[in-house]
Amino acid sequence: MTPAASVHVEQLTKRFGETLALDNISFDVSRGELFGFIGPDGAGKTTLFRILTTLLLATTGTCSVEGFDVVKDYKKIRNIAGYMPGKFSLYQDLTVEENLNFFATIFGTTIRENYHLVREIYQQIEPFKNRKAGKLSGGMKQKLALSCAMIHKPDVLFLDEPTTGVDAVSRLEFWEMLKRLKEAGITILVSTPYMDEASLCDRVALMQNGHIMTISTPREVIRNYPLSLLSVKAGDIYNLLGELRKYPGVHSVYAFGQTAHVSFRNREVEKDILSGFLKKNKHESVEIMPIEATIEDCFMELMNNNH
């Protein structure tokens, strides 16, 4: 365990009957770190968060939060952790203000005492403080849930897919909020299925089917991408994808919007030869560019290796 670890997980396994939800995972999160768990549904993100927030028992392995054991010291952890579950879990028939007040009271504090912590987020929904939580839009529910998770001044914040189903603009704003919480010194563990959010974290764990495929800084994940990558654009993307998959030496071809990302094991890919090949196959306005991998490229490559 590193000295400044806020969250420590060692050889954690969780089974549900036959299903292996978490398969022997280990990691540390440092104090004040913004740490992302990136992966699709079924990766094990929610199970992990439920174990760390003492709501679920591990099958084997040990975990601690701020030095407290998740089994022995669960009551202590509940006082210092803030948890925003993936499913909206506030009281739908209480108003915005009543919900926040409820969570403050449970933790023996008041809205007034910790208002400064939630001010920036809560102010955006305060005009609707008398509206029932069930009647809020998705973006507002998310802000209220974060306020409720923060009102007792937690040391560690667990946010389970806070941006799922949220539009691109609200996602951007949510991450700006997280950055400021991090600056306030709070350790944040956040999970997301959106690969593009990885770059906003200090470090990320890329997860799939209960495994951590890699843990690193986003920069390092990209630097470790083992292949050379070209971005290819042509008039007709779907025909292009098929054609590229037939090209000798191609490792993978994936659509990225209107371009295709083509990877090669051989680092010396001749751009001009590929361009010639595509022109010969009647592709027009072909543009080929060497590019750096995105986290999504890395994720897919790691998935292929793990199969």
């Binding site: 699709p40 549904d41 799922t164 299925p193 690969m195 994936y254 994720f299 998935m303």
Partner: peptide, 9 residues
């Protein structure tokens, strides 16, 4: 929503 990037494609 929520599926892995290969399945999404």
């Amino acid at each position: 929503g929520g599926v892995d990037p290969i399945t999404r494609r």
